[in-house]
Amino acid sequence: MATEERKQEILENLKNAVIEYDEDTAREWAQIALDEGLKANDAIFDGLVTGMEEVGRLFEEEEYFVPELLMCADALYAGLDILRPHVEQLDLGVRGSVVIGTVEGDVHDIGKNIVKMMFDVAGFTVYDLGRDVPLDKFVEEQLRTDSDLVCLSAMMTTTMSGMEKVIHDLKEKNPDCIIMIGGAPASQDIADKWGADGYAADASNALKDAIDMVSSLKRLKQEAEAE
């Protein structure tokens, strides 16, 4: 078992690997974390996610832009792939599943992938439909998987209007399903008008919202452990 000091060192290295978008280092320290007896959950939330929180801050301060963000995400996934098989299921009361995709007519999926990453980190079961997804497919997949959440993304104004119909169909068939919409043209107004439960306007907001979500999970985890 690693000493507290060593544990901090390992977490620090995981965090920095994400910030410095270094996939190899993230992989290496994720393995070290397991070898030296750290809990996979701690390595994810207190290492990789802490790094991603810092990345979110750098993005907001316009220190980092989308290319850096994508590279940081790659580093996070490199570590996550090693740690995930060892995760003990935490009962946080929020574990769930999500159907996610970019609507038909839109082939942009960067924002969607960033949001998906945070769901992956949070331990959600993610059904990723990809991009340019026919609208009926969202409804079909939600019914098939009984997912708690459906996330619809569109980057272009010109594809967003399709969302209205999906939201309507989903709510009609399954009123409990939570629907989030995202993309540059999305707004609170549109979310309200179309009956969506939440929205994120762009990749940076999506990232911020996703990080907030995982940060709350992290708090829940700490509280659960404190009890």
Binding site: M156, T159, S161
Partner: peptide, 15 residues
Amino acid sequence: INTYAHTEDLFYPTI
């Protein structure tokens, strides 16, 4: 390209 000829809805062509 895809012109989404199958639908009456408005879709701009994509690659």
